[in-house]
Simulated assay, not measured.
Amino acid sequence: MKKTYRHIFFDLDHTLWDFESNALQTLKDIYSSLRLCEFGIEDFERFHQQYILHNDKLWERYRNGFIKVDELRWKRMWHTLLDFKIGDEKLARRMGDEFLNLLPTRTILFPHTNEILDYLQRNGYSLHLITNGFEATQHNKLKYSNIDGFFSKVITSEGSNSLKPHREIFEYAFKITGANASDSIMIGDNIEVDINGARNAGMDQVFVNHISDQPDQNATYTVYSLLELKEIF
């Protein structure tokens, strides 16, 4: 017998909004507009891979409270430039600003995103977001992707002063939505951040395994496509 849920909390990046594809297009534009080739970065693919490496490391440090938001925003570019022996802080900060200006305007969503959000909304579920992203950036992603109308509340790490997987951001989400852990479920792609975080807050979870990675045996549900959510709700 299926459990009855009232509130569905989605992660945004890597779950609904295709961060990798959108970031790639944004970095290509920055590489071209700022003429990074003239600075000695002749291999865009290497530049892209080094950015991913540093971005992931710095996001982990940010989640664990070791660095502030501003450091994350420009130092991922700074460390990438250093890999090419370019010690130009001004350029790194400009790249960071350009990235945050352009990225939220990208509109690539995972397949069936609109279909499943419409399905869930029509079936009476209250839809919300819990995201570790920045307030203005995440709201702009939703607006430009034309999915902002599906969500009653958008809880960001910046707005809640907490981060997934910490329990505080989930408790904040319950407070402003009027939800309870018992009638809520979290849908996300990151086992540590989304799945374990929600479990520790007392919520059921859906692991969205877009990349067909090793499934989390402890997740309440696992899906490999957003369309499979219709089998749960």
Rank of each mutant, 00 (worst) to 15 (best):
R94F: 02
L24T: 05
G202H: 09
V154I: 12
L58N: 14
Y31R: 10
E158D: 04
D70K: 15
F66S: 10
A23V: 12
D97H: 14
K230G: 04
L58H: 14
H139F: 15
Q49R: 13
L53K: 08
N190F: 01
D56I: 11
L163V: 11
Q50I: 13
I30Y: 08
S212K: 15
Q121P: 01
F99K: 03
R94S: 06
I67Y: 03
T131G: 01
D18A: 08
I169E: 05
G197Q: 00
N101Y: 15
E38G: 07
K68Y: 05
G87N: 15
H112F: 08
W17K: 01
R122V: 01
M95A: 05
N55E: 06
I169T: 12
Y172F: 09
R199T: 10
H128R: 09
N123C: 02
L117G: 05
G40W: 15
I187C: 10
L103R: 00
L53N: 11
N209H: 15
S225R: 08
N218K: 10
I108H: 08
F99S: 00
L81Q: 06
D194K: 03
Q25T: 06
E192S: 11
H54M: 07
N196Y: 08
W78P: 05
N209L: 01
D194R: 03
T113P: 01
T220N: 00
F10M: 12
I187A: 03
R93F: 02
